[in-house]
Nucleic acid binder design. Structure first.
Lengths: 135, 135
DNA sequence: ATAAGTGTACTGTTTGATATAGTACACATA
DNA sequence: TATGTGTACTATATCAAACAGTACACTTAT
């Protein structure tokens, strides 16, 4: 499930939840309007403190991935048509940083320019293909 | 300089040093055989504890980026012709994870498949171009 | 031989983020 | 009215990161 988590990982539990949820939404596993487990429910499911779940949900809401309605629950947000600018910038920066790391690691793997371009293109094609196929 | 660091960043200082050094070597700013500042020298330069510098140097050596010679100093390593397999795997895994994050962020930016492929290819081309030009 | 400079290895201590535990409140819904 | 929702507290424990200080084995230049 998308909320599976590794408590022994060096990456914080709440961050794992954020990444997993974002990934699940991006891949179409979670659809806009879908209800997420309540903080206490999910806390019981994966044996994690409900405050930790809440922290993850709050970050997800900050990023516009989910919407929370007091007393009702949390739901996958509808993707906004025109996104707030600062979030676009935040994501642009993230992509630049990730790409830089990839380039450096590729260098140490002695990867050729064309080889890397091919690998990245293939990865992107596959990912969008899987998404179209419903994973 | 490659050893510039932000003490207020959420990413640990020693990790910043590792990333920066790897990046500098990959871009050709640091060349094989170049001598790095001694741990105490660099510690004084950027006002960081020398143990923190040592920790960064040890990680860099573990990754095969630098070589340390007792009593002599630390130097940028010559790139090995055939790298140990597990390190290749480590880097392959890193690239996969980075790519996944890029794909997710691109999704939230409503980026089209072709658009993303183009962006990535351009980034790679530019990076290798800069490297050829000596930055 | 001596002194200075190298990485390394300790012993402590402090700080901040993470996670837990327990409780409480305001809100929505059945 | 009762239950379930997110949220907000307080308090505590744990761990990695960073600091401070010291010491040792090694290399090199004086």
């Amino acid at each position: 499930m998308w909320y599976d988590v590794d408590p022994r990982s060096s990456v914080p539990i709440y961050q794992q939840l954020v990444q997993n949820a974002k990934g699940a939404v991006a891949k179409g596993v979670l659809m806009p309007g879908d209800k997420l487990p309540s903080v206490r429910e999910l806390a019981a499911l994966i044996t994690i403190n409900h405050n930790t779940i809440a922290k993850a949900y709050q970050e997800l809401e900050r990023e516009g991935v989910i919407e929370t309605l007091r007393g009702r629950g949390t739901f996958v947000a509808a993707r906004p048509e025109s996104e707030a600018i600062w979030k676009g910038e935040e994501r642009r920066k993230m992509i630049r940083e990730m790409m830089n790391q990839i380039l450096v690691e590729a260098f140490y793997m002695k990867m050729e320019e064309d080889e890397l371009v091919e690998l990245l293109e293939e990865t992107v094609r596959d990912w969008y293909q899987e998404r179209r196929d419903g994973k």
